[in-house]
């Protein structure tokens, strides 16, 4: 099972087992630095980031972002905002992701695989790769 995040016109899949929870954006507590809002849960604050279609960090949360997905991380989860979110079963949907071609790889790309989904090209990323990407660019 995968969690599909839709934002800025892109489709991003993350393995469900690497997702801590899905929250609504109105639950964020405050913003302390440009581009980062915070979510407080059980006394732990999780940073929540906004990405654009180039996977660059946005400085403000776009109005369409209604949800955020918290990725499992230590010591606290890390969030990514999105416009839409849903569960997708690759087997049921007959989706067959393919590895990103070697020639397209860059050291800082979190994209591991590509998959055609609803006439779009969707990206498959691990939670760890996304968190690394966010930490490098924040």
């Amino acid at each position: 099972m995968y969690i599909l995040l839709v934002f800025d016109g892109i489709y991003l899949f993350v393995p469900q087992e690497e997702v801590h929870s899905v929250e609504i954006i109105s639950d964020v507590t405050h913003s302390s630095q440009a581009g980062v809002v915070w979510f407080l849960e059980h006394g732990l604050e999780s940073p929540v980031f906004c990405l654009d279609s180039d996977f660059s960090l946005l400085l403000e949360v776009p109005e369409k972002r209604e949800y955020f997905v918290l990725l499992k991380a230590d010591p606290q989860p890390v969030g990514i905002t999105c416009d839409e979110v849903e569960n997708v079963n690759f087997k049921q949907e007959h989706l067959h992701p393919q590895d990103l071609p070697v020639v397209m790889k860059t050291p800082d790309s979190p994209i591991k695989q590509l998959v055609s989904y609803q006439d779009k090209m969707a990206y498959v990323c691990s939670g760890a790769a996304l968190i690394k990407h966010l930490s490098v660019h924040s």
Binding site: I10, S53, D54, F55, L100, P101, V103, M104, K105, T106, D108, S109, P110, I111, L114, S116, K120, M121, Y123, H133
Partner: peptide, 15 residues
């Protein structure tokens, strides 16, 4: 389809 975080000389894929 354009894919982000890819080299400038190979940014697109197709089916």
């Amino acid at each position: 389809f354009e894919v982000p975080c890819t080299p400038q000389y190979c940014r697109e894929v197709f089916i």
